[in-house]
Design a protein around this nucleic acid. Structure first.
Length: 859
RNA sequence: GCCGAUGUGGCGAAACCGGUAGACGCAACAGACUUAAAAUCUGUUUUUGGGAAACCAGAGUGCGGGUUCGAGUCCCGCCAUCGGCACCA
């Protein structure tokens, strides 16, 4: 034994790597698939999924093992309770950071990515996770992204029918639609709209990747500019993405976040005639959620970019309008939000006619109206809308009351429901009734209609970067078309210089040979965003090696369809993906479901968010604060089991909690105590089998704690309440420590309960005990044994302690027989000396008896 | 501003359906072992007052009310911290 190991409280650094090697050599965690010889179809399935990591150069962070340990414990537990468990791991390895890191270090992203993956894999293996490594996926592997491209082609070749279902575009061909008409309905389509262009990153970004006008990656400024881009028609699924959240076992907060992001609002479109010197037959349609306030519209606002502005602007206002439009166009989104407090705008000189009362109202342009939402035009009701109110005050526009608020409230700027007033035929109606009434009226007169709008925009799906999946698309005569599936995977060209060009021209344009598809056709030069690979990786895990299909049918049906209601049974990850990955993946999954490729409409049945781990100082861990904890250091000093156990013991999984090295030492000492239940050390520091471990039955007290522990740990694992399960195991360990004779049978049972949490220690002690007491230790690995069942009889005490309260205050305690009657308990309680003292001769008004718990005497 | 989550010892936290608040761990203190220290084992540890002590009495789960025999838990009104959204008509 080395001196290094003598310093350790138990020899984890010897046995942890030894068992990791043994498990790997034996493929101890291989999960058979339907069709495999050793597959047992009679067992229920359990698919437990981690959000796969982005393999950065910085290596594993202590936040990673938090969720991974939780899923590992529950996966191991489910296996021990007779389930087929799918618990895989992989790498989300395309994306901006890898490319930037490669540029910075002068290496190819393929090389840095492979190095980073090897680093991550090594770190995860050191933690003893029960992954089936045969199912490892890597989004940058051609065998993987072949199918990402294949799914893209499914999107490209689909449209959404009248029932809101994705169907192949061949149906539209059959209906005789033209090429252009079909292109306009594809789920993957080309658009020229203004997009979020980030000059620093040299790429466009999705709305979800822009935060406060800056890029989510790196925090660089983002500007709007019109560019030709690939879009995915996620908006066609907006309603289903809201509705189908209802059946999911997700944290309410995340569902709400998605609902708000999709942002459904019900209202009406109203058509206003425009008075214009130049044209006679002009009109503007506005969207409003408050059609009931139509009589209160005192002006109208168009988005500055609105196409109608040019046609209606008067000569006197032309230069003011032009100046304002230029100023707005130059503003980045960031500036537009920063200036949100101060309203700005310009009168166009034109007027519109309010269809309900023929009132002539001025038309303004202002950047508080967004082109991309609704119709890009609003009717302003300053009396009952906060923004319109502010604007009207600033520009001295008329403010009119049309809603009567409840007693005692000022009507100016009152935005809630009330009674409609000053509104002709709507007077006296409640807001809700007035909305219905006016909508029907507008529809009858063909002046408008009820509509639903969503905040969600179509998903901007192309990036001007090198390190991503190339689109399986070629261009010819200005038209796009898919390449044949037989040409997949379409590999990116090998480029020495893959830096962004500094212009919207993607780096792939530099690969001139690759770009030329045929004499007349050239390849699409954009690449897909990082989210593409993570939209379907959980499906690939079901059948990771399949080269004929993105996932085999039998495998998909078993792992995703089996059980009720199907899908991934438990998905654990951080909140940061609430509106990105989790929304995108649901969208792709629904398309695949409609097309008949997967069995369920939703991919992730149960979602749990792990809480952030903060630094010891209570601040977010960051290099600049110097409070980052490296999991490798923790494993070196205390072992993998200690790291696993500590992260689970810190507090509830979902909670934000600070790191504490002292806390790690605490669980380390606990594991050492467990070790010393079996092993003892002599003066030289050599370990030998403990004499107190004997083949004897457990006494009643110890047996009770043992069975309580089996019961509580099983229940707590199901609830993901790992901290309390560990506390209970500590109680049991203390009981073993205090008992002079340690019954080997009971101890082995305890080790089974401990094994999902601290698999290395459990495995090592199994092996040690097996040498001396082979009859008490099952064969195979600890992970293969059956979860012990508890004996309800062992939990029952003959006598129970009853608390005696007088007027709700604790005054005495009694010990009574377990099955003592209510009457008997009441008599004993009234006779208790301390109770007597506090009753002090007063008449007893009432006595409440809770059997097994307490008696409350009311005087 | 809106939405969500969380407030319990010196610290991380427990407490099932309303029924003994503080399990378990950390830190601290004391004792045992040791020439000594570390490690280990055994205690004590919410707080205030009284007592040499076992113990006794009062207060106590962010604040203020309420329901109840009984509230950390349920209801009403506040406050604070964290996270998200933020001109979406």
């Amino acid at each position: 034994m080395t001196s290094d190991q003598q310093r350790k409280a138990f020899p984890f650094s010897d046995f942890e790597p030894r068992w990791q090697d043994a498990w790997e050599a034996a493929k101890a965690f291989r999960t058979p698939n339907p069709g495999d010889a050793d597959f047992d179809a009679s067992k229920p399935k359990f698919f437990v999924l981690d959000m796969f990591p982005y393999p950065s150069g910085a290596g594993l962070h202590v936040g990673h093992p938090e969720g991974y340990t939780a899923t590992d414990i529950i996966g191991r537990f489910k296996k021990m309770t007779g389930h087929n468990v799918l618990h895989p791991m992989g790498w989300d390895a395309f994306g901006l950071p890898a490319e930037q890191y490669a540029i910075k270090t002068g290496q190819h992203p393929r090389a840095t990515t492979e190095k980073n993956i090897a680093g991550f894999r090594g770190q995860l293996k050191r933690l003893g996770f029960a992954y089936d490594w045969d199912r490892e996926v890597n989004t940058t592997d051609p065998g993987y992204f072949k199918w990402t491209q294949w799914i893209f082609l499914k999107l490209y070749n689909s449209y959404v029918n009248d029932e809101g279902k994705a169907r192949p575009v061949s149906e539209l061909e059959a209906q005789g639609l033209s090429r252009d008409e079909i292109d306009a309905r594809r789920l993957a389509y080309v658009s020229e709209a203004p997009v979020n262009w980030c000059p620093e990153l040299g790429t466009v970004l999705a709305n979800e990747e822009v935060i406060d006008g800056k890029s989510e990656v790196g925090g660089h400024p983002v500007e709007r500019r019109p560019m030709r881009q690939w879009m995915l028609r996620i908006t066609a699924f907006a309603q289903r993405l809201i509705d189908e959240l209802d059946g999911l076992d997700w944290p309410e907060g995340i569902r709400l976040l998605q609902r708000n992001w999709i942002g459904r609002s019900e209202g009406a479109e109203v058509k206003f005639k425009v008075l214009s010197a130049q044209c006679s037959d002009l009109s503007v349609t506005v969207f409003t959620t408050r059609p009931d306030t139509l009589f209160g519209a005192t002006y109208m606002v168009l988005a500055p970019e609105h196409s109608l502005v040019d046609q209606i602007v008067t000569e006197e206002q032309l230069s003011a309008v032009e100046t304002y439009r230029e100023r707005t166009a130059r503003k980045s989104d960031l500036e537009r939000t920063e200036l949100a407090k101060e309203k700005s705008g310009v009168f166009t000189g034109a007027f519109a006619i309010n269809p309900v009362n023929d009132a002539r109202i001025p038309i303004w342009i202002a950047d508080y109206v967004l082109l991309g939402y609704g119709t890009g035009a609003i009717m302003a009701v300053p009396g009952h809308d906060e923004r319109d109110f502010e604007f009207a005050k600033k520009f001295e526009l008329p403010i009119k009351q049309v809603v009567q608020p409840p007693e005692g409230k000022d009507w100016q700027g009152y935005t809630d429901n009330g009674i409609t007033t000053n509104s002709g035929f709507l007077d006296g109606l409640s807001t809700l009734d007035a909305k219905h009434h006016i909508t029907t009226w507008l529809e009858e007169k063909h002046l408008g209609k009820g509509t639903v709008n969503f905040k969600l925009r179509d998903w901007l799906f192309s990036r001007q970067r090198y390190w991503g999946e190339p689109f399986p698309i070629v261009w010819e005569d200005g038209k796009h078309r898919a390449i044949p599936e037989s040409e997949l995977p379409l590999q990116p060209p090998t480029l020495e210089d893959f830096k962004p060009t500094g212009t919207p021209e993607p780096p792939l344009s530099k690969a001139t040979d690759w770009v030329r598809y045929s004499a007349t056709a050239t390849r699409e030069l954009n690449t897909m965003p990082q989210w593409a690979g993570s939209c379907w990786y959980y499906l690939r895990y079901c059948d990771a090696k399949n080269s004929d299909r993105f996932v085999g049918e039998a495998a998909e049906q078993y792992w995703m369809g089996g059980g009720k209601p199907g899908g991934v049974d438990l998905y654990v990850g951080g909140t940061e993906h609430a509106v990105l990955h989790l929304l995108y993946a649901r969208f792709w999954h629904k398309v695949l479901f409609d097309l008949g490729y997967v069995s369920t409409p939703e991919p992730f049945q149960r979602l749990v968010n792990q809480g952030l781990i903060m630094g010891e100082d209570g601040q977010k861990m960051s290099k600049s604060r110097g409070n980052v904890v490296n999991p490798d250091d923790v494993v070196d000093e205390y072992g993998a089991d200690s790291l696993r156990l500590y992260e689970m013991f810190m507090g509830p999984l979902e909670q934000v909690k600070p790191w504490s090295m002292k806390g790690v030492e605490g669980v380390y000492r606990f594991l050492a105590r467990v070790w010393r239940l079996v092993m003892e050390t002599n003066q030289e520091g050599e370990w030998s089998f403990s004499a107190s471990l004997q083949d004897a039955p457990a006494d009643k007290k110890l047996n009770k704690v043992l069975h309580e522990t089996i019961k509580k740990c099983g229940e707590d694992i199901e609830k993901l309440s790992f901290n309390t399960a560990i506390a209970q195991m500590m109680v049991l360990t203390n009981a073993f420590t205090q008992s002079a004779v340690r019954p080997v049978g009971a101890l082995v049972t305890f080790l089974k309960v401990l094994s999902p949490f601290a698999p290395h220690l459990a495995e090592e002690l199994f092996a040690i005990i097996r040498e001396k007491f082979p009859q008490h230790v099952p064969g195979g690995f600890a992970a293969d044994c059956t979860w012990p069942s508890y004996d309800p009889a062992a939990l029952i005490e003959d006598e129970v302690e009853i608390v005696v309260q007088v007027n709700g205050k604790l005054r005495d305690r009694l010990t009574v027989a377990r099955d003592a009657s209510k009457d008997a308990i009441e008599k004993l309680a009234l006779a208790a000396p301390k109770a007597q003292e506090f009753i002090a001769g007063q008449p007893v008004k009432k006595v409440i008896v809770v059997p097994g718990k307490l008696v409350n005497i009311v005087v």
